[in-house]
Simulated assay, not measured.
Amino acid sequence: MFRLIQTYPTARDAACMLSALHITCMQTPSDSSAQASNAVSTTYKRLEETLLHQSHYTEGDAMAGLHVVSTFLFSGGRGPWDLFLDIAIKFVSSVLNNPKYYGPEDVLKHCSETTRFIIKTTMWFDVLASVTTQQVPRFLSVYRQLFGRSGAYVGEGVSSPEISMLPVMGCENHIVLAIAEISDLACWKESHTRRNSLSVPQLVERGIEIERTYLSPDSPYATLGVSSDSAFGLGLNAHHLNPGTDEATGGAIDLEILQRRRLTNEIFRASARVYLHTVLSGENPSCPEIMHGVAATIHALRQVPTDSPKVNRDVIRSVVFGICICGCLTDDRGQRAFLTKMLQSQQGESVGNVAEVQRLMEKVWERREQTQNGGPPVNWRDVMRESKELLLLV
Rank of each mutant, 00 (worst) to 15 (best):
V127M: 01
V107Q: 01
K120I: 11
R116L: 15
R138W: 05
L166R: 02
V168S: 09
S112I: 07
A152H: 05
I118N: 10
V168I: 10
K120G: 03
V136C: 12
L140A: 14
G157S: 09
I175F: 00
F117Y: 13
D126L: 05
T115M: 14
R116Q: 13
A152D: 07
N173W: 03
R149P: 00
W124V: 12
N173H: 03
L146C: 01
E156P: 03
N173I: 01
P137I: 09
V136F: 14
T122D: 02
D126W: 04
R144H: 13
R116F: 09
P167R: 06
K109R: 15
S130V: 02
Q145P: 04
P161I: 06
Q135M: 04
G148D: 07
K109C: 13
T122Y: 01
Y153K: 11
R144Y: 08
S164D: 00
T121R: 14
T115N: 04
Q145H: 13
T115F: 09
T132F: 04
S159G: 09
S164Y: 04
T133L: 11
L128Y: 05
R144S: 09
R149Y: 01
N173E: 06
Q134Y: 08
Q145N: 15
G151H: 08
S141Q: 15
T114S: 12
R138T: 13
K120F: 00
E162K: 12
A129F: 01
I119T: 10
S130G: 03
S159K: 12
V142R: 06
V158F: 00
E113C: 12
S150C: 07
L108I: 15
L166G: 06
W124G: 13
A152I: 04
R149V: 11
V142D: 04
Q145R: 13
H174L: 05
E113S: 15
P161A: 05
G157L: 02
S159Q: 09
Q134D: 07
M169S: 12
M169G: 13
V107W: 02
E156M: 11
Q135N: 09
E172Y: 04
M123A: 05
P137Q: 04
I163N: 01
R116E: 10
S160A: 13
T121Y: 10
L140M: 09
F139N: 02
F139S: 03
V142P: 02
L128G: 00
E113W: 13
S130N: 06
R138C: 02
V142F: 07
P161R: 09
E156G: 12
T133H: 04
V107P: 01
T132G: 00
R144A: 08
S112A: 05
K109T: 14
I163P: 03
T121H: 11
T133Q: 03
F125H: 08
P167D: 03
V131D: 01
T114L: 12
Q134P: 05
V136W: 15
I118P: 08
Y143S: 08
